[in-house]
């Protein structure tokens, strides 16, 4: 039995990551993405590998990956990016919980799920803390500076040196000095190419999600929660006014 004890301990340690509660899964990985669960050895993350709380995920100089979380958030990692999944609590029944991660270097795209709609999801870097609510955002940390770009949703905030700045402008950039203006098309394209690689396009039909017709809709944008503004709320009803005019005055005839 004494001889078996170290073996049992080793088995228990190796089993620890698998026993820990899964918070998400690897949705794509090219060519290599590595994960280090707490107290366990580094492993290669293939598509379908489960992710656990406090796991460190790193992409190589040529690696990329997408992670899918239980609350339906999606995280895309650029090459040379390291994150720690240090806070993920999610109750699927109520949709309540919280989400937080650390970005120690690199760039990522965060597309929010259930958790970031109820309250802010947070991404901390060595120099800043980013709060994301109902939002899709791009975050870049290089050297000692952090930049975040608001893509869609409700609001994006950054706290640097105790000062918090927010933007709700689509394409708005937050950086060390707070709000920095709108992102340039060239910078955005560079960042998207960094995250997704050059698009090697070829022929193909769409997956048929029913997302859009052949012509753009004349409707305004929709929030991740389906909220829309009604552009016709304060419009005059010329037709009713005409009807009133026929009878003269009354409830539609302004000025008696």
């Amino acid at each position: 039995m004494p001889r078996l004890l170290p073996l049992l301990c080793l088995t228990a340690l190796l089993a620890a990551p698998a026993a820990a509660q899964q918070i998400g899964t690897v949705a794509s990985s090219e060519p290599t993405l590595r994960g280090t669960p707490p107290g366990a050895a580094t492993r290669t993350l293939a598509i379908g590998t489960g992710l656990v709380q406090d796991e460190t995920v790193a992409s190589s100089a040529s690696g990329r990956g997408q992670l899918l979380f239980l609350d339906q958030s999606t995280l895309t990692l650029a090459p040379n990016t390291t994150i720690v999944l240090d806070r993920f609590v999610f109750d699927p029944a109520t949709g309540a919980g919280e989400m937080g991660l650390r970005l120690t270097e690199g760039a990522l795209r965060f597309i929010g799920g259930t958790l970031s709609r109820g309250q802010e999801a947070t991404i901390t870097t060595p120099t800043a803390s980013i709060g994301i609510r109902g939002s899709t955002t791009l975050v870049l940390h290089r050297g000692s500076e952090t930049y975040a770009i608001f893509i869609a949703g409700d609001r994006l905030c950054i706290t640097v040196g105790g000062t918090r700045s927010c933007t709700s402008r689509q394409g708005g950039v937050l950086g060390p000095g707070g709000y920095m203006g709108s992102v340039s098309g060239a910078f955005l394209a560079d960042l998207l190419r960094l995250l997704d690689g050059l698009p090697p396009l070829g022929p193909g039909s769409g997956p048929g999600t029913g997302i859009g017709g052949p012509n753009p809709s004349d409707r305004g944008p929709v929030s991740p929660e389906g909220e829309e503004f009604d552009p016709a709320l304060f419009d005059d009803d010329a037709f009713v006014n005409f009807l009133m005019e026929v009878l003269g005055g009354g409830s539609g005839g302004e000025g008696g």
């Binding site: 949705a27 794509s28 899918l68 339906q72 999606t74 597309i111 929010g112 193909g204 997302i211």
Partner: peptide, 19 residues
């Protein structure tokens, strides 16, 4: 937003699919 997230992953898996 969920549709965009899914399509991002789809395009990642099928980068040549222009549709």
């Amino acid at each position: 937003e969920a549709a965009a997230a899914t399509l991002e992953r789809f395009v990642d898996l099928e980068p040549r699919n222009v549709g």
